[in-house]
Nucleic acid binder design. Structure first.
Lengths: 349, 349
DNA sequence: GTTAGCACTCGACGCGAATGAGTGCTAACA
DNA sequence: TGTTAGCACTCATTCGCGTCGAGTGCTAAC
């Protein structure tokens, strides 16, 4: 970054104008367009000169000779890092989010799901969210509650606040005493152990030691393991995927397909959110910075959430590179704050 | 239906040819195409004559003068009622479905969800499914299980086998004894009553009578009501919506949007599935028979499921009118049978 | 350093000719 | 009387071509 890379104030102002304009028209922006809005009192010719410079420096590009300019990834990057001014959400928007998050949601997954829905509703983009991953959290309690004569509900609670339950069908009836015994044994054997350590081997052992008829223990053990699996492997959810269709850049059916196919692969999404790492600060990845072919025209804004100490998961917004960064950042930031707060409440319990 | 509406065997054969062909090419089919596949050894001219007749009778239509013919809704209707030959699924397909449905799924909703996923995977269309609606089912038990000091899991079980649970956050700690008391009271007051009768009033009453500190009863009551709500109002779920994009008839972005917007309205879907009524037999609604603008080019094949006596819900497949009816019908029928069987098992419990 | 003016570029749009798949009709044939 | 070959006709699709206009780069004047 030599002195030649430096942008003077006028160039910055022009770049900002271009990005702002392009963000909401999706049309290449020409010199006249900018000179018309009298913010910076310059003729189109002058702006043209500056734009030529900006193009040389790689901040903007021309889709074809003699069309307006379009921000390049580098342009967006500069915009996000230096030019964007994040303004707070409107009070009524904040109000709306707050009341929606304040409903007594006791389950972490539901809470995160709610957060994702809110974000995609406010921003109009697609939101993806990673449910809390409590792989290392110790198991706090395991309970078995009868529902009907041949079915039981298996409940696993971790000390990270995660609750997961599952109805299991047994092959045979189970007495209250049997349930009690099974429940107690499982508790004694597993409570305190981190979820990740509940291996198949351990579960097998449980199965062997207990004298209960098969066709009961097996299903229950399977149920517990399924709960563990769900707790350990964080689920990725998408909300508002259809929002992408609102943007002209996806009018191309093929491109749209490509994106949708990408977003349906859990592991890809997971990878995208995981790289957020343990930091909880906001991260913006623009277009090619995502290192994924189909993401070339998409940006991803992510933020981690947690209880202040530990990082639990992350939420993110996907939209065209020309997304309204200011608004997206503000929205994520606000929702994340509330999410952290609720998280803390639940975990503290 | 006079004698003039009657189709002779040759016309039927030709109609079948047209429909079959159109179903898998999506191109208007011309007389030569049909005469080329030597099934019925006729010249294209003869076929043209017959096609002219079929068109007069309204079974096929020309998108424009001098293009091939396309089946009309009436044509599909005749095809479905008289010509389609439903063949069983391949053994390995049946095997696959069976193993997938045989996993010990204890919760009705999960079971139905699984069924939907299977169907859309096999057929390549979009599946929608209504989870069992147990509005009239009496409540079998209500249980409250502590998870953490300030959170409880509320569990509602109906005698129709539905289990619904929800984690609730309390404002204050609740002793084991308190939990016991609350649980017992709720049970005594609500068990045996049909879900639909658990009105707000009744819940209020529960709240008043119990002497427990507020900030505890209120959340729990809300939790119970939420469970009731979920049990009473059957949820509609969609699987494989993206499959629709595989068909050339939805290459038009606008049409695709229209459909997607339609399919996102729960009440529309609900209405579509509800009209299946109490019959459990298969029903096919073709194009305009759906009485919904955007469904003009879509067909819906539905079937109810239940425990043999009572009708619980329905599953259905949505696809272009030129859908592979034979395969769809076979798939739904098979999956439905397994669903009924599992249903019976669970309910009998 | 800024601006007016001008020639130039190139995508978008509309028009008309060529193409070809498929038809309806007529006349010949079995 | 039913079937078929032949032929004129129709019409969606495709492609080339000229026009239009937004926007540029460059030059010369301020």
């Amino acid at each position: 970054m030599g002195w030649d890379e430096e942008l003077n104030d006028r160039k910055k102002a022009i770049l900002r104008s271009i990005v702002d304009d392009y963000i909401h028209t999706a049309q290449p922006v020409g010199s006249r367009t900018i000179s018309r809005k009298h913010e910076l009192a310059l003729s189109s010719a002058t702006i043209r000169n500056e734009m030529a410079d900006l193009e040389d420096l790689g901040y903007i590009a021309q889709p074809h000779t003699s069309s307006g300019r379009v921000p390049s990834d580098k342009g967006y990057r500069f915009y996000v890092d230096n030019l964007v001014q994040v303004q707070e959400l409107a009070t009524e928007e904040m109000q709306h989010i707050r009341t929606a998050m304040d409903e007594r949601i006791g389950e972490l997954d539901d809470l995160v799901r709610r957060a994702a829905t809110l974000i995609s509703a406010i921003t109009g983009y697609t939101t993806l969210a990673m449910t809390p991953q409590a792989e290392e959290a110790p198991i706090r309690s395991i309970q078995i509650v009868p529902v009907g004569t041949q079915r039981v509900l298996v409940i696993v609670v971790t000390s990270a606040g995660t609750v997961n339950s599952r109805v299991v069908r047994l092959d045979r009836e189970l007495s209250d005493e049997g349930i009690h015994r099974l429940s107690a044994f499982l508790g004694q054997r597993l409570e305190g152990k981190p979820v990740s350590e509940v291996t198949i081997r351990l579960m097998m052992e449980v199965e062997q030691v207990l004298g209960l008829a098969d066709g009961i223990v097996l299903p229950v053990v399977e149920g517990v393991r399924e709960c563990m699996r769900r707790i350990g492997h964080s689920e990725i959810m998408l909300d508002g995927m259809m929002n992408l269709f609102n943007f002209p850049e996806f009018n191309d059916l093929l491109k749209a397909r490509e994106i949708m196919d990408l977003l349906r692969e859990e592991d890809v999404l997971s990878a995208m959110l995981h790289t957020v790492g343990k930091r909880t600060n906001m991260e913006v990845r623009i277009g090619s910075e995502n290192h994924l072919g189909p993401m070339r025209d998409l940006s991803l804004v992510t933020a981690g959430y947690g209880d202040g100490e530990r990082h639990y998961g992350a939420i993110g917004v996907i939209g065209p590179t020309r997304m309204a960064y200011s608004r997206v950042i503000a929205s994520i930031d606000y929702v994340r704050k509330l999410l952290d707060r609720e998280m803390l409440r639940i975990v503290r319990d």
